[in-house]
Design a protein around this nucleic acid. Structure first.
Lengths: 193, 193
DNA sequence: TTGACAAGTGAACGATCGTTCACTATACTT
DNA sequence: AAGTATAGTGAACGATCGTTCACTTGTCAA
């Protein structure tokens, strides 16, 4: 099979996966690849496994691996875009898998206010929170302090926990009564429209 | 079936999905749910479809819908965390699906330099680019200008395209020879470690 | 206590699954 | 031109798929 044909079929699989949420069966791949025999498909699948794009479970069912839903990570802004030829070599990265390490404890909150603007967190950004994680000095946390919710830097001053904004127009918060850290910010996501 | 049992089973499905990359078959759900009959599973599936968590394709195979890999979107920072009781009601959002609208034309680049710092884009952030999209005034673009790659605001001054940084220490770029817009920034992603 | 509904059992169904067989067609090398 | 992999064909296989049957058990309200 030519390299171009193989790449085209990977794209077809990727499209099917993102549309159907699963990999096609062998018969479905026959239609997809315009071939009439499952044996032909089986050879393609073997090649996919060689390239670490899919896996097989114990019953022979296909599990997506390198072929998942994310975007290609291709380099840096300075280096610019790779040529079309290099593109295919790059890793596909699922943003879900990349950002979310603890599925059950992760939440998204929309940012309101500009108290963390100097940390590059703007109003209407989304922050990914991991609940129950122990915050370290300098982490950004979402906390309930004196019955109000806020997002700030988690800092220690003289053995006492304080919450520092990343905006010089706001004061550092020294909790009077109670400080409940609800979660640690593990990622920031901003989408442009 | 009690509400708690149902929620537990949704969690089991979600775990299976994120581990195996697919939804379990009816027999596998029998083991997963600790029941012995597929009829029992079929009723659970019907309930999942009612709640819009999964779909069935024409052949009866299950397609994940509301049950996908993302994180729960639960509100705003000001409002804080919902109570544990409310949590389950929230939408699960796949970050892949949310951020990436055009799979084949989307790429990730790592940001180098601080020329967009005032737009909340810091060094080592990731930007999601859509290649080939027509930029509008005010969009952030990655472009090759006079043989160098850079990320800037896309602006028009007197009918001519210029690239403005979001950092007052950098000058506006007026392209001398050529300006090639490689892609428009559609999202910014920052991960803390 | 009884009745009604929900949840689970166990067995059967045709359809499709992934695998494997022997064979043919195409492409490329020597 | 002959030889050799590579790619595709077509048919068969047992296993598992999702569906459906009649039936039993569990739960809660009247």
């Amino acid at each position: 099979m030519s390299k171009e044909t193989f790449q085209k079929r990977i794209t077809q699989l990727r499209t099917f996966l993102s549309e159907q949420g699963r990999l096609p069966s062998y018969s479905e791949m026959c239609e997809l690849f315009k071939v009439k025999s499952k044996q032909a498909v089986a050879r393609v699948v073997d090649k996919l496994i060689e390239h670490n794009l899919v896996e097989k479970d114990s019953a022979g069912r296909l599990i997506p691996k390198g072929i998942k839903g994310g975007a290609r990570l291709v380099g840096t802004v300075q280096a610019g875009f790779p040529s079309a030829a290099e593109e295919e070599l790059c890793d596909i990265m699922s943003l879900d898998d990349f950002l979310i390490t603890n599925h059950v404890a992760s939440f998204l909150l929309k940012v309101s206010g500009d108290s963390m603007i100097e940390a590059g967190i703007q109003p209407d950004d989304l922050v990914l929170l991991e609940r129950g994680k122990q915050p370290s000095k300098g982490d950004i946390v979402v906390a309930e302090v004196d019955h109000e919710w806020t997002m700030k830097y988690y800092e220690k001053v003289g053995g006492k926990t304080v919450l520092k904004p990343a905006n010089k127009n706001y004061p550092t918060i020294v909790p009077k009564e109670e400080l409940v850290v609800a979660g640690v910010v593990t990622a920031v996501i901003r989408k442009y429209h």
